[in-house]
Write a protein that binds this DNA or RNA. Structure first.
Lengths: 145, 145
DNA sequence: GTGGCAGTTGACGTAAACGTCATCAGTCGC
DNA sequence: GCGACTGATGACGTTTACGTCAACTGCCAC
């Protein structure tokens, strides 16, 4: 019985550029430096939906994509609920006209909030620049004496 | 007894451009749309240090500044611990040479993390742009039929 | 067939950032 | 002098985002 549904081992070989590679939970965990617990938690929250082989989860490329979106959202300081909202924005398919219009306004809100964040970052970077200047000056004076 | 230490009322008059205006907790709360509880909590965490008149807190301009820094940090998704770290960066005065050098590296770390966030935002904005395009296209097709 | 893993589920624990009382103190207008 | 506010101070509750067991399962090597 030559089973075509490989899950690990040979599949993790770097030479196999097979279509639809699959990954175990530990693979994802290592790849993104999070714990399996976290991944399961995200699934619980409906943010990931890996396939199953029996009870075991099998992940594919789309799970990677999702996970990267989630982690990016987290780096931006969004709650998981917000991250989910953002990810949901990507599912354009779900639409009658009313839905689509509503989606547009959601997108706009998100954009506005992101632009505010950009501004906050710029301001903070500017502040830091000023602080650094003062620090360097203090250092210089301290060394000259 | 004409008490010069006004705390509220006349002091909140828009005409008095007195030096060192003072504010009550509710003033701050309203100004930044947070609750008094939150302000007290921040004080508990050593992030604010208002003066006291008896038991009552009296806030001044520097508390405003602090609070704005805190809230900006929060908008950027930092934990209060991180916010405190950032704010502490601003206190250049506390330095022997070693401290100052260490401060510089802290500043640099912070800058790197902020730049990563910038990139994340750019990427997300780009994604949203793509999504919007698809939504508009879907809308158009839906209306033409 | 028996360790030894990797993984699963379920339950409980925890840190952060406040919210929500309950109780008490100070002050102001009348 | 007395409500009506505004504020202070605990103390406990709540939500989020996982961590940490404990008990079980499937599979693989020997």
């Amino acid at each position: 019985m030559n089973n075509p549904e490989k899950v690990s081992k040979e599949n993790s070989s770097p030479t196999t550029e097979s279509p639809a590679r699959s990954y175990r939970i530990a693979d994802l965990a290592k790849a993104y430096d999070i714990t399996p617990r976290t991944i399961r938690f995200y699934e619980d929250q409906g943010m990931l939906a890996p396939l199953r082989k029996g009870r075991q989860r099998i992940f594919h490329e789309r799970d990677h994509v999702r996970l990267r979106l989630i982690l990016r959202g987290k780096r931006l300081g969004f709650s998981l609920a917000e991250v989910r909202e953002i990810i949901d924005l990507y599912d354009v398919d779900a639409g009658g006209e009313k839905q689509l219009v509503h989606l547009l306004s959601k997108i706009d809100q998100r954009r506005i909030s992101l632009e505010q964040q950009m501004k906050d970052i710029q301001d903070t970077l500017n502040d830091l620049k000023g602080v650094e200047k003062r620090v360097r000056k203090a250092l210089k004076e301290l060394r000259e004496k």
